[in-house]
Design a protein around this nucleic acid. Structure first.
Lengths: 235, 235
DNA sequence: CAGTGGTCTAGACCACCAG
DNA sequence: TGGTGGTCTAGACCACTGC
């Protein structure tokens, strides 16, 4: 027996979804139903579902069930377009939720990056961002308040780049980017109402001003199936 | 009972590995041994191992066992440094294996990208690249032979960028990059001797010459735990 | 050949979500 | 409260690796 049982179930939904027979956000039958229909144990059905999840074709939401994944949004971190704008331009509906905002003391890493004293005040911003009501991104931002006085009184569900450009005449220019495919940490997985250990894409971004001082440091955790990064390098 | 059994095992090795008590490439005990030692079923032990794998702390090699993951290499696709060079510079040993090389007819997608007729000859190159004897990257390359006559007679285990620079005075300059965290396709998973559905990082790169013609199109599939992408954007 | 991970079963209870 | 996914057990056989 070289046929793997879970492959049937996987292939079945793989084909259905790619042929667009199942619209985005469609709920799949329950694991118990699938197990019965495909005459496999529930464990085997789950294995198939987990493979489909890894392929990015379906996702789970907490204990509510499995759903067909909508298309990934295309994101160019080097291009200073706000989340709200590029999501809208691609035909989706963005939404940003501020989970926390507070002035913190810079820890070692942040102090070093921003070239400020250890313990100096920085603005910490914790946001959750949605595409079509689906939470796709957790963002943790550290902002240099010395360079941007009063920033904490702005509407921080907006794009920071936007605020800097319009209110501070201090747009992002240069940046250092880092990407890593890794499991979402437990907290971020929970905030994205997915399961612990779920695959994700981690982005770190250090934003510099014209005079090369660090305006902000940005940590982003994306659902792996929600985003494709595209960057053009032009010399 | 709020304690999850698999968490004990996961935490145990998580701590051991982060405290560097287990050197890279150390083999873990077998799943059956772990199940017995931690008094859980083998299924539960496997779940813990899969979580550690998602974290990038351990990896599996075919049916040989589970091993501690070595550190990820840092890769800047925008910087024209060859694989051999940047791997070496970071203290590891690179190796490249040519799996296949042949002249093919351009399919629709490649013809469109390269702006050549459908069916025109292109050089297809299929390579596997290793870091410290561990296969980490599968590369599929399409090269514009019209612009680079004789390229098929070069030593194609070398960096293509290197060859272009030294032999053709036609270095890569501009490029379009795309990244996506996704499961490795079955063939690539097999070539990397990991399991199907394993998390990976997919990179697509279109390389342009000085006059904006397309020199090559590059598809890369990395083990997710083997690489961190770093790019600097300077305006 | 022995040992490994890969697949699979037929149950069970728990934690959480929605109505 | 009923249904969902999340966790878990104690087995079993298969496919492949390495000796």
């Amino acid at each position: 027996m070289t046929e793997k049982h879970y492959r049937y179930l996987q292939q079945y939904f793989h084909d259905l979804i790619l042929k667009k027979k199942m619209p985005y956000e469609t709920k799949l039958p329950s694991e118990r139903e699938l197990a019965e229909q495909f005459k496999v144990s529930r464990v085997t059905a789950r294995q198939a579902l987990q493979h489909l999840e890894a392929e990015g074709l379906i996702y789970r939401s907490n204990r509510r069930g499995w759903f067909v994944t909508p298309p990934a949004v295309i994101y160019d971190p080097a291009n200073n377009v706000s989340f709200n704008l590029y999501v809208t331009e691609q035909g989706y509906t963005p939404h940003t939720e501020k989970l926390m905002q507070q002035i913190e003391s810079a820890n070692h890493k942040i102090a070093l990056l921003m070239n400020i004293p250890l313990g100096a005040p920085v603005l910490f911003l914790h946001r959750r961002r949605y595409i079509n009501q689906r939470p796709v991104l957790i963002e943790k931002l550290y902002v240099n308040v010395d360079l941007l006085p009063g920033i904490e009184h702005e509407d921080l569900t907006q794009s920071l780049g936007q605020i800097l450009r319009t209110k501070y005449q201090s747009p992002y220019r240069d940046m250092d980017l880092s990407f890593k495919a890794t499991a979402l940490p437990d907290n971020e997985a929970k905030d994205l109402s997915t399961s612990t250990g779920q695959a994700g894409l981690q982005i770190e971004r250090v934003n510099f001003s014209d005079d090369k001082s660090v305006l902000s440091v940005d940590y982003e955790f994306w659902r792996h199936d929600a985003v494709t990064i595209e960057i053009s390098i032009r010399n």
